[in-house]
């Protein structure tokens, strides 16, 4: 049986399996562990600034640093709940007061 199976169904070697598993796990770990330390702070500050203009919830913002090869990309996703845009009159003074 074993002979026929090996004849018709080429199996991947364990080294190939190891290589594929490593590639997948390292892709994940590189993205998370090599993220710079400032990301959480950046996220908090963005939340504060954007929050002055539109209503967003604490978990409505996602900041990630990704990219491939020589280029990196800072990706900022902010979810705005529909119909929750603040009026512009209150926002202006708030910003200038902060500066």
């Amino acid at each position: 049986m074993g002979f026929f199976r090996s004849l018709f169904q080429p199996r991947r070697s364990s080294a190939q399996v190891a290589k594929e598993r490593l590639k997948i796990v390292l892709a994940h770990e590189r993205a998370s562990s090599r993220a710079p330390d400032f990301l959480p702070n950046l996220q908090k500050e963005l939340l504060a600034v954007v929050g002055r203009y539109v209503e967003i919830s604490d978990d409505g913002i996602r900041v990630t640093l990704g990219g491939s090869g020589d280029t990196s990309m800072l990706e900022i996703n902010i979810e705005i709940e529909s119909g929750k845009l603040k009026k512009s009159n209150g926002a202006g003074p708030a910003l200038s007061a902060a500066v």
Binding site: S13, S14, A15, A18, K19
Partner: peptide, 11 residues
């Protein structure tokens, strides 16, 4: 490595 039991240098 030749038998596919160990990661090769290039891998």
């Amino acid at each position: 490595v030749a038998k596919g039991e160990m990661l090769a240098v290039d891998d």
